[in-house]
Design a protein around this nucleic acid. Structure first.
Lengths: 176, 176
DNA sequence: CTTGGTAGTAGCGAGTCGATACTATTGCAA
DNA sequence: TTGCAATAGTATCGACTCGCTACTACCAAG
């Protein structure tokens, strides 16, 4: 068996194990993933299309999922001022609590670091193969600037809030 | 963000990307995973309960999935002679073709090896955390014996067919 | 001011998924 | 030998995913 085939098989099993581990209470895998993403993304990256892009799903599916989360009072829905078509979904306090309650694997730090590096590489490759967005952290972006008056985004041309430097941005481009 | 939390987030995304990549034609993720497993498992490991164990799902869910695959003529269903309760699902030629057609990631060999090692470790840890079976290859098992007349399983106490040494076994125990 | 592209959604059909409940078996123990 | 608990597999239910098509609202560029 070639190594790439083995990776596919491992991903298959890992996928299942991970989903089974998280799945708890009344949230399914897709809802958990969306909720977790919304908790990490900045204010420009919490629209249905963006979530769909991140989760490699269609807008239709994500729309349904976000509505389900909304019915469960885990997110709120807001319209955008600048573009009337765009909607933004933010975590409620209950939503944030649900994210906190999610369990991950429990590896010793050294091993976790090795695993995290491998996973980052793998994700990056798979994104590249499908021409997808990197969805990296704002502060690692080529448009991120540190100015005397504070952080600034050179792409959107606006000042950034302090907490946004560590959030996911849909416009993220790896620094050159 | 601690490293284990980051791993959970990476797994979330990886899970989605992998599923989206594979999903093709008229097979969904669960069906693909079951089909792939059936193609790798030995004759003692192709029953619904075993598949359920491997995929971290319930017997009920897997039963449904296997019936769906059966309707699509990708697997056949056979009863066991030794235990009337047990059923075995084998790939048909069409099923084997569908497995062949599955695409995996496409990494250069060196990187693939690093990724595979990390994934194996991660899977092993997650299995251990849930007291699950390893589902390793027959020839890496502590009960696997090379005898003059051929390979032998010291647990089931029977002779092994040549191809079985490289198949997945539900009874697999890591060599001591 | 039309026209083309984008954002979001509804609704459909197949299927996942956990849960519950049920039927055959099997295996063990009194 | 019977009797009973454990096991294998299924059916069914309700909530939901998922891709798809169709549709509306909105934006932008000619």
């Amino acid at each position: 068996m070639n190594t790439n085939t083995e990776i596919a098989a491992l991903l298959d099993r890992l996928t299942r194990l991970h989903a089974a581990d998280r799945r708890s209470g009344n949230l399914n895998d897709a809802q958990l993933a969306a909720l977790d993403y919304l908790g990490r993304a900045n204010r420009f990256s919490r629209a249905p299309s963006t979530v769909a892009d991140y989760l490699a799903a269609t807008r239709g599916t994500v729309s349904q999922t976000l509505k389900a989360l909304s019915r469960k009072r885990l997110v709120t829905e807001t319209g955008s001022q600048t573009d009337q078509r765009v909607r933004r979904y933010d975590l409620t306090a209950a939503g944030a609590a649900a994210v906190q309650a999610m369990s991950g694997p429990d590896l010793p730090e050294a091993e976790a670091r090795v695993a995290a590096r491998a996973l980052r590489t793998l994700v990056a490759k798979m994104i590249a193969a499908r021409d997808g967005r990197s969805f990296g952290l704002c502060r690692t972006c080529r448009y991120h600037q540190e100015r005397p008056e504070g952080r600034h985004c050179a792409l959107l041309q606006l000042a950034l809030r302090p907490e946004e430097a560590d959030q996911i941005c849909r416009e993220h481009r790896v620094a050159a």
